[in-house]
Simulated scan of single mutants.
Amino acid sequence: MTVRKLSISVPPEIEETIRAAAADEGKPVSTWLAEAAVEKAHIAALHAAGRAAAREMVAEYENEHGTLPEGSRQRAREFLMEAGLLDDEPWRAAG
C-alpha cells in the first residue's frame, strides 16, 4: 500500500488524547489518525444522506399537502439537532 506523509498541527491536549487512544488500541498514531479520518468521513456522508432524504421527504409531503407549517419545521429542526444529525448549518427543506 502506498502512503503519503502529512503534517498536522494540534493543541498539546489533543496530541495527548490522540497518542493515548492510539496506544490503547496498540496502533501507531498515523494508523489511528487515518482510521479516525475515514470514520469521520463515513459519518459525515451518512449525515449528508440523511439530511438529503429528510429534504426529499419534506418536498414530497409539500407537493401533496402544501407547505409544512413553520412550527412543524422548527420542531423537526430541534429534533434533528438533539439527535446530532444537524449542526448549526442553515436547514432548508427542498421545495
Rank of each mutant, 00 (worst) to 15 (best):
M1S: 15
T2S: 14
T2N: 11
V3C: 05
V3Q: 11
V3T: 15
V3W: 10
K5R: 15
L6W: 11
L6A: 12
S7N: 14
S7C: 06
I8R: 06
S9I: 07
S9W: 09
S9M: 08
S9R: 10
V10N: 07
P11H: 06
P11A: 15
P12Y: 02
P12H: 07
P12G: 04
E13D: 15
I14N: 05
E15F: 09
E15L: 10
E16G: 15
E16F: 05
T17C: 03
I18Y: 10
I18S: 06
R19W: 05
A20C: 05
A20N: 09
A21F: 04
A22H: 04
A23V: 09
D24H: 09
E25L: 13
E25H: 07
G26N: 08
G26L: 08
K27A: 10
K27E: 14
P28L: 10
S30V: 05
S30H: 14
S30W: 08
S30L: 03
T31E: 13
T31S: 09
W32A: 02
W32D: 08
L33H: 05
L33N: 04
A34N: 13
E35L: 07
E35Y: 02
A36L: 08
A36C: 03
A36F: 02
A37N: 02
A37Y: 04
V38H: 05
K40S: 08
K40M: 08
H42I: 02
I43M: 03
A44R: 07
A44K: 02
L46M: 11
L46C: 04
L46E: 05
L46S: 01
H47V: 13
H47G: 02
A48F: 00
A48R: 13
A49T: 12
A49H: 02
R51V: 08
A53H: 07
A53I: 04
A54L: 05
R55I: 04
R55K: 14
E56W: 00
M57T: 01
M57W: 13
V58W: 01
V58F: 00
E60C: 02
Y61V: 04
N63D: 13
N63I: 01
E64D: 09
H65F: 02
G66F: 00
T67Y: 01
L68E: 06
L68K: 06
P69M: 04
P69K: 06
P69G: 07
G71S: 14
G71M: 02
G71D: 15
G71P: 02
S72M: 11
R73V: 14
R73E: 11
Q74D: 13
Q74C: 03
R75P: 02
R75Y: 05
A76E: 01
R77E: 13
E78R: 12
E78A: 15
E78C: 04
F79M: 12
F79D: 10
F79I: 12
F79Q: 11
L80W: 15
L80C: 09
M81Q: 13
E82I: 03
A83H: 04
A83P: 03
A83S: 11
A83I: 03
A83Q: 14
G84Q: 01
L85Y: 10
L86I: 09
D87K: 07
E89M: 00
E89I: 01
P90F: 00
P90V: 07
W91L: 15
A93C: 11
A93Y: 12
A93N: 12
A94W: 08
A94M: 11
G95M: 01
